[in-house]
Each structure stands twice: as C-alpha cells, then as structure tokens.
Design a protein around this nucleic acid. Structure first.
Lengths: 195, 195
DNA sequence: CACTATAGTGAACTATGATTCCGCTTGTCA
DNA sequence: TGACAAGCGGAATCATAGTTCACTATAGTG
C-alpha cells in the first residue's frame, strides 16, 4: 500500500506541507477504520483516528464515497503494480499468476471491512476507479496471454474472468466472515488452471 | 417462491383474514421493491407498493431487517425444496446438481437487488436465516454424496463450498451488474465437476 | 345486529450520520 | 518577520429514513 497519491489535481497548485501530510494520514486512517468497522465506520471516526477535524477530511475528499473510491483506486494501483512486477519476473507463467492472486487475496482479507463498506456505498465507488481497474485488467491480460502460450492456464480464461472471480471472493470475505476464504481461493485457482 | 409462510408464531392465534392477506402482499411487494431498488428501497416504498400503510408493514415485521431476513428465509426454503426435488428424481447425480445450481442462479439473478440490499443490511439478516440455511446445506450434502459415489463430482467438494461459491456469485451479481454472471456460473460449475 | 379484539393508517417523531460554515491557525514567501 | 492565502477545527445544520402512536376501521362472534 505504498502507491503514491497524486497531488489534488484541479488547478494543480502544490499542496502546503501540512495538507499533504494530512491527506496521507487521512487515507491511512480511512484504511484502518473502514477495515475494522466496515460499513459502520463514520467520517468522524476517520477524522478522530487521523487526529484531524471532520472539516479537514472534507477539504481533502468531498464526500464519504470519494474517500472510499480513493481507497479502491489505491488498491487497484497496488494490484496493477504487483502484476507488472510479475510480468517482469520470469518463471512459470501460471505460477506467477497464482502467486499474484494469492497475495492479492491475502491483502484483501486483511481489510475485508473495506470490501464490506464498499458494498453499502453503491457502485459509483467502483466506477470512479474505472481507469485503475482497466489498467489492472490490461496487465492481467498480458500475464494470461503468456500462460496461455505455455499451456498452463485454462485456455479460455479472460482477464475479466479473474476480476469477476476475485470480486466474488472478496465480497464474500466481507459479507460472510464465517466462510473459509482460503478454501474459496483454492477453488478459484483450480478453475483457472489448465486441465 | 410459493413456499408458505408459517403464521406469525408467538401465542400462535390464527390471523384475521385481512391480516393474512396483507402479510402475503407485503412480502410479495418487498420482493419486487427490493429487487428493483436494491439497498435504496425504503419501507415506505414497500408499503405503497403493497397498498397498505407503513404501520401495517411494521405490524407484520418489527424492523426492516426482519423483513429482509424473511425474504432470505423464503429463498433458502425455495432452494431447499428444489434440492429435495432433485434428490427424489433419478438421473446422473452431478447433472442434477448442475441443474439445481443453474436454476437457483437464475432465480437469484432475477432479483439481484435483494442480494444487494442484503449486503447493506448487515450480517444479522443472514444469521436470522441460519436454520433454513442449514437445512439447505444438509440436503445439498446428500446430493453431493450421491455424486461422489458416481464419481462425477470433484471428490473433495463439501456443501459449504457450493454455498460459498454461490454466495460469491450472487453478491457479485448485486454489486457489479456489469459482469457476466452466466460466465461466472459456468466457471463455478466447472470447478465442481470431477476433473 | 352490536361488540370488541384485532388490524390498519399515516402524520409526527427520532436517531443517525453526512456535510457545511465560519472564525481561527499556520505554512510560505518576500 | 509580517502579511495573507491556504488549511484546520468542530459545533451546528440538514437530510434521510426507520419507527412509533393515537386514532379509526373492520373481521369475527354470539
């Protein structure tokens, strides 16, 4: 979760130092608070956790949903970074994909509450991260292509299939903590494997 | 969705005719309204759709969540009924399971909004349907056992695996209508099949 | 037919939590 | 170091629904 947030675009004036610091801090707190409290997390909680006033949160993110959306964007960026790393490495292509997926699932599990919060937030939070999502899909497609040539992945798998399956896995994590997501993950990986 | 609702338990006095009629009508309206509007659906909407006052809805269901929970209970009962039917039929056991799953998925898709509403409602709605869920799991386990003996199902599949996968499928339907749930379903079925 | 227990009605009440706003503080820059 | 734009704080505001309740209507019964 080290991906840098680009400075508040708009007219793109450089943020004051304290503002930049707070921006980061708020995002980090949002991550923690939403992960822990899920949909019940309130902006006030995020503000308190970050040690700033609510007003400050609102200066940086116009709505709660925007804050959530930024969290999603960051996560997609992280996943895309990891996918690019995998693309750079060499090794058995399917194994790379599997490793990637397992790692991402573990990340998602560690803050399942965010997924849960997202579910309540409505789909706009997702669509606001469209670009990052597409980027991830593009990189994933390359990885798939490579595995397909190696013949180690189920030949008809598309990048969106993986997205869909992971989406199912993650929302289940959030909504039903009683389920064993590792088992679910194993099943997902098996369906992707050739043969 | 023809499963009968048992009369309001408590001291179990027989409901007045109009009350019974309204109970049914409210449930039916709730199904329609939640399916359409998802988490945005309000009790007032349900009441209006059913042609009754809000107070009447509250006479029958103490909270919004209780109403949602009853919807879930009904759905599980329906699925369990179907599973029992499948158990009674004879034919290739895995094919029976596949048919069942496909049918249930189609049902779920037809009111994906309910799944979505549920996601926002919190997990209590699920735990309130625990009994019905367990019943479904039990019948499913029998179907699986049969398929396992026939060697046509992936040998290590448990009933909860199917529940988990379907849960993932259904929540994805609700949260991401842009995804192709039929494809998702095909993948799920493939992972269950003996490989 | 009364009579009454049961049920229905919907305006009013509340709780919750997001968002605003304005006076105060603090980086930044000359 | 002073000026001031950028940023901050957090009490107050507002909106949205869920829920209640005092009153009215009506099945069911003798």
């Amino acid at each position: 979760m080290t991906t840098k947030t680009p400075p508040l675009s708009e007219t793109d004036r450089p943020l004051r130092a304290d503002a930049r610091r707070n921006h980061e801090r708020i995002l980090e707190s949002a991550r923690v608070v939403f992960a822990q409290a899920g949909p019940d997390a309130q902006i006030d909680d995020v503000a308190r956790h970050a040690g700033v006033g609510v007003g400050t949160v609102y200066r940086h993110f116009p709505t709660k949903e925007a804050l959530l959306a930024e969290l999603v964007r960051q996560k997609f960026r992280l996943f895309a970074d990891r996918a690019r790393d995998a693309l750079a490495k060499d090794g058995e292509p399917f194994a790379l994909i599997e490793g990637l997926i397992r790692r991402n699932a573990a990340t998602a599990a560690s803050d399942a509450g965010i997924q849960y919060a997202l579910a309540s937030a409505g789909e706009q939070a997702w669509t606001q991260a469209q670009a990052e999502q597409d980027e991830l899909l593009a990189v994933t497609a390359e990885l798939i292509e490579r595995a397909r040539r190696a013949g180690t992945i189920r030949p008809d798998v598309e990048a969106t299939d993986i997205g869909m399956l992971m989406c199912g896995l993650c929302s289940t994590m959030g909504a039903r903590p009683d389920f064993d997501w590792r088992r679910h993950l194993d099943l997902v990986i098996d369906v992707l494997r050739a043969g």
